[in-house]
Design a protein around this nucleic acid. Structure first.
Lengths: 193, 193
DNA sequence: GACAATCTACCTACTAAGTGGTAGTTTAAT
DNA sequence: ATTAAACTACCACTTAGTAGGTAGATTGTC
């Protein structure tokens, strides 16, 4: 039989939460040990090295995020609604007192193991690609302003959201994120919000 | 007599560089010791604790940044030029393979000593205030779009720049920053760039 | 001018706590 | 009996920080 709750998953949960709140270099196997309630050595059984753990955390995060984007795609065809719901994903995270996992790792980038770096790059690439598609569709449908290249608009949106999360947490004011995100959307969308 | 080169200043230089490239939790007194060429203990003579050092690094960075903003103010009255030159400050840093000190510290925020947090908040507040002024002036002069509140536009610009630096470094492509920054300015400025 | 006291800026040598990681053992389910 | 998943007990190393000493410059007093 499988253990009551999947320990590896619990370890990933703890690691993800720690990275989102403190960063890659500010969490240790001891922290996870305390949160999950198993010994340090047992974590090494599931994830031999810290870079293995890091890589798996981001891989799972990418997959979760992919599913959420898919869900948005299934829920609506309206590019503007899609963007609003995409922004909501980040707001949800922030309200849980977490930053974007990959936004945090981007700050730690120079100290990351190569495998983790690749995962982070992958996350950004696939989100950028999805946003580019949404914006391109919106341009064709005439509901999105087409002032800039869709690709650039996507990059701006992604960068703006990451930066806004950073600043909102520093200010201790989630509203700061909402305001910036709202303005970002208003810049892109034709019908003023 | 004073030492040939100010050691405290050298320590601050090393610490700042390390934070801008690796983050607060990924640098140690040993790193600085190696860079400056004095023993760890001697660093403690100049900066008793790591939080003292951190606080002083940000305080000096704020001061440097304030001078650069003042220089921009003296160089031109054109709000659009001011914004372009302000963006250039960040690009200069990125070309030196450094992120914004306070952007990095914002990612490490939850693990920072209180004194350092306050400094980081201060940095954001004064940059936001300056940008708000520039944008307000530009609105009055009719060279800046007034779609949103100047305060919000300032926050968006700051967040966008921080996020763009993060993403540009992850992609290993400084051009990414330039493109996003250019688009950000185009959104704000009336005369299309 | 001489002398002692103090101060600056560094040093060696150390500590307690924490780091990721390993070896070998136990427990419990199949 | 095998095996997965945990354990205890360690390891070498790094962390920020401390204790105490020293060479040399500065200062105040006679």
């Amino acid at each position: 039989m499988q253990e009551r709750v999947d320990t590896a998953e619990q370890i990933l949960d703890a690691a993800q939460s720690l990275v989102q709140t403190r960063g890659y270099n500010a969490f240790s196997y001891a922290d996870i040990s305390a949160q999950v309630g198993i010994r340090k050595a047992s974590i090494h059984y599931h994830f031999p090295s810290k870079s293995d753990l890091g890589k798996e955390v981001v891989a799972r995060y990418r997959e979760t995020f992919r599913k959420k984007r898919d869900q948005i795609d299934r829920k609506t065809d309206d590019p503007c609604l899609k963007l609003a719901q995409y922004v909501q994903l980040y707001l949800d995270s922030l309200q849980d007192e977490r930053l974007c996992l990959c936004g945090m790792l981007a700050a730690d980038f120079n100290t990351l193991p190569q495998a983790v770096r690749e995962q982070v790059k992958g996350f950004f690439a696939e989100n950028e690609a999805w946003l580019t598609n949404v914006l391109t569709d919106g341009c064709k449908a005439g509901v999105i302003r087409c002032d800039g290249l869709a690709e650039v608009e996507a990059q701006l949106l992604l960068a703006g959201l990451q930066g806004a999360m950073l600043m909102a947490r520093s200010c201790g004011d989630i509203k700061r994120f909402e305001v910036i995100a709202q303005r970002l959307l208003a810049v892109l969308v034709v019908t003023t919000g």
